[in-house]
Amino acid sequence: MKVIMEESGFERLRCLVVCAGAGGLALGLEQAGFDPVLLLDNRSVACETLRLNRPGWNVVEADLLDFDPVDHQETYDVDLLAGGLPRVKASAATGREDSDEEIRILESTIMLMHGVQPRALLIENVPDLVSKPAYGPIRTYVTTELEHLGYRHRWFVLNAMDHGVPQDRKQGVLVAFKNDAVDGFVTPTPGTEPPLTVGEALGASMATRGWPHAAAWAAQADRVAPTLVGGSWNRGGADLGPTGSKRAWARMRVNGGTVADRVPGPDFPWDLSLGIKGMVPLTVEQTARLQGFPDDWSFAGRKTARYRQVGHASPPPVGRVLGLSIRGALSTGRPRPRDGITPNPVTLC
């Protein structure tokens, strides 16, 4: 458990979250003091997840490409426009017509700046978007549009494992601010404590149904998880990622080729001579913990849809540290909390 201090003398800020998914980014921003005026996603199961966990949130099920802020004037002049956008693929970056939807969504998010006019922008995507030559035309487009609107911006890469997430997950980040607020933005730096290992994060849950090998399994699962991959919404079942990821999971005696309905019981074998059948699979709830979701965050839908939401999510702890840094830049020059006000502790899982 981590405890941060939220200073009650500061007002809460407002944000618009697009491509909201299961709410990982929005949850992190909420912990940093941003309340969403609207959350947008085009998948009904993701919208159901958002409403399930935050009944008071204004969730709109619609395609970003069709979204018009004129119909949602509560989004005007928000403090932050944020989105964990679909992963831009290299093939899309090089202009293949059959794989450019991710580019169109990114461009639509930038164009949304014209109507919403937020004080700040946050986009999270693949790390290659930040520096690889193949993505140069996209970065040029973003720079041109933002400068035209009077925003200054920065690109950088964070690894979720440096910010309380037990997973090696690199994320490309774009932030932009009106005028000179970007000068007050401090890129989040890695924490001082080593990241949790998979065994530390999941050992207790592995023992909840009486599996006698839980402690031994946890002791050898002594590294962070590889990047969780949600996979395609259009095909396949739930698994923990491509071949390389499955090999990494196998080294921790985890069956990465499936997702379990429940944690192992007393009779589940842990016999390496059985190959993958002697390795333990993870549940959706366990993968959510590896993404940094709190245990009380629920996911709507059947197992595969629930896992897709987890795998595609932005880890809430990363959203929180980014939100705090953005909040700091936006608050530069504002008065400090009133004398006599004691900060309130906010407990984060």
Results as ranks from 00 to 15, higher is better:
273 S>D: 11
274 L>W: 08
256 G>Y: 05
265 G>I: 04
236 G>V: 06
212 P>E: 05
278 G>S: 08
245 S>N: 14
250 A>M: 01
209 R>C: 02
278 G>M: 06
204 A>Y: 04
262 R>F: 03
239 D>E: 12
250 A>H: 05
275 G>W: 05
235 R>D: 13
252 M>R: 04
267 D>Q: 14
209 R>P: 01
265 G>W: 00
239 D>R: 14
268 F>M: 12
258 T>L: 11
227 T>K: 07
252 M>I: 02
226 P>L: 00
213 H>V: 01
258 T>D: 08
213 H>C: 05
225 A>N: 04
206 M>Q: 06
206 M>H: 02
240 L>D: 09
235 R>S: 13
212 P>F: 00
273 S>R: 06
238 A>E: 07
270 W>G: 14
250 A>K: 07
272 L>W: 07
269 P>A: 13
225 A>W: 00
222 D>Y: 01
251 R>P: 04
246 K>G: 01
261 D>R: 12
217 W>G: 15
257 G>Q: 15
225 A>K: 01
250 A>I: 01
236 G>L: 04
232 S>T: 15
273 S>P: 00
206 M>D: 09
215 A>K: 03
212 P>A: 09
238 A>Y: 01
265 G>E: 04
215 A>Y: 00
253 R>A: 15
253 R>L: 12
218 A>P: 01
247 R>C: 08
274 L>I: 06
248 A>R: 14
204 A>N: 05
207 A>W: 00
253 R>H: 15
267 D>K: 13
228 L>E: 02
216 A>N: 04
213 H>A: 10
262 R>Q: 13
263 V>D: 15
246 K>M: 06
256 G>R: 08
276 I>S: 14
215 A>T: 10
273 S>Q: 07
207 A>I: 02
275 G>E: 09
234 N>K: 09
228 L>C: 06
244 G>E: 10
212 P>K: 03
275 G>L: 07
204 A>P: 01
229 V>A: 13
268 F>T: 15
260 A>G: 13
246 K>N: 04
206 M>C: 09
223 R>N: 12
236 G>E: 09
204 A>W: 03
264 P>V: 05
252 M>P: 08
264 P>F: 00
206 M>I: 03
218 A>Y: 00
257 G>I: 09
221 A>I: 01
263 V>R: 12
252 M>T: 04
270 W>D: 15
225 A>H: 00
228 L>W: 00
207 A>R: 02
224 V>T: 14
269 P>E: 07
214 A>C: 08
261 D>M: 10
234 N>E: 11
252 M>E: 04
242 P>K: 11
277 K>G: 12
233 W>C: 02
232 S>A: 15
224 V>E: 05
232 S>V: 11
232 S>D: 15
260 A>W: 00
276 I>Q: 14
251 R>A: 14
212 P>R: 01
273 S>K: 10
252 M>G: 11
237 G>S: 07
238 A>M: 05
248 A>W: 06
258 T>A: 11
212 P>H: 01
251 R>Y: 07
250 A>L: 03
228 L>M: 02
249 W>D: 09
277 K>L: 12
241 G>Q: 07
249 W>R: 09
271 D>L: 12
240 L>W: 00
223 R>C: 10
262 R>S: 12
